[in-house]
Design a protein around this nucleic acid. Structure first.
Length: 263
DNA sequence: ATGGTCGCTAAGCGA
């Protein structure tokens, strides 16, 4: 089973790219973040026409929003209201594979604003609180689960183009990277991307729109993640970032991540 | 040290 995660930065603005991605990489399940559309206006027909007729959509007006589209049936669908804010940052589905039911959590963690200080930046506080809730949730999790999405934290020195330059930049500050480590420990999550591509090999999934030449400067960060419950460790077959998609016409600033499982 | 770019929805926000 191939599962993909992609922060699409508006699904409606990038249907051509989604079309190309589905054709070229044939994921069984695609988890999208930052769909930037209300649930009711999600382009359902586009996905149905391409065989992805099972959908769990959690959208809102303007910003954020996540959607999981699938060509295999969904056994369940759940939404959690993180930080009691009512914003659309998560959707969970269940899928029956072999004799087991696995769950797939699609997350869009708050970016956290510009200043890494919750006293002066509420958005940073929200991000830390959101991660704290994910730690608590992880510690109670019993089911076989795959967690994907834009977690907006690049945890390792080799997850950013310059560890030293980014230590005070939101996404790579010690308070965030420590908290992400606590999240991983809370469920003994397997960092699937690093399981396949161990540190210190360079591994990025996001490059800013503001670079003159994103590929030449290569100031990337690994903000997107695929994690798996420890009992799924032996099911992981492959995991890679499709960097090429960052260079497609009118791209998202995130590249998709693909993970292959053999359940 | 600073500003650099997107998409939403109609001036500024969130990223």
């Amino acid at each position: 089973m191939r599962i993909a995660s992609w922060n699409i930065n508006s699904v409606r603005a990038r249907l051509d790219l989604v079309d190309r991605f589905l054709k070229d990489y044939q994921p069984d399940i695609l988890c999208l973040q930052e769909i930037k559309v209300m649930t009711e206006l999600f382009p359902r027909d586009f996905f149905t026409e391409r065989g992805y007729d099972h959908m769990a959509i959690h959208g809102q007006k303007n910003h954020h929003g996540v959607a999981t589209v699938s060509r295999v049936p969904l056994a369940s669908e759940d939404i959690t209201n993180w930080c009691d804010k009512g914003d659309a940052r998560h959707v969970r589905i269940g899928v029956d594979v072999a004799s087991d039911r696995i769950f797939l959590d699609n997350f869009y963690v708050p970016a956290g604003g510009d200043v890494a200080d919750r006293e002066v930046n509420d958005k940073f506080g929200h991000k830390l609180d959101f991660m704290d809730e994910m730690i608590e949730w992880s510690s109670k999790l019993k089911e076989s689960t795959i967690l994907v999405g834009d977690l907006n934290v690049a945890p390792l020195p080799s997850d950013v183009w310059s560890h030293k330059s980014l230590l005070k930049v939101v996404s790579h500050t010690p308070v965030e990277t420590d908290k992400m480590q606590d999240m991983l420990s809370a469920h003994d999550w397997l960092d699937v991307m690093r399981h396949i591509t161990p540190a210190p090999e360079r591994l990025f999934s996001w490059w800013s729109y503001r670079a003159r030449d994103w590929r030449a400067s290569d100031r990337g960060r690994r903000l997107d993640h695929v994690w798996a419950s420890p009992q799924l460790k032996n099911s992981v077959k492959d995991c890679r970032v499709i960097e090429d998609a960052r260079g497609w016409e009118k791209p998202s600033d995130h590249a998709p991540v693909i993970a292959d499982f053999d359940f």
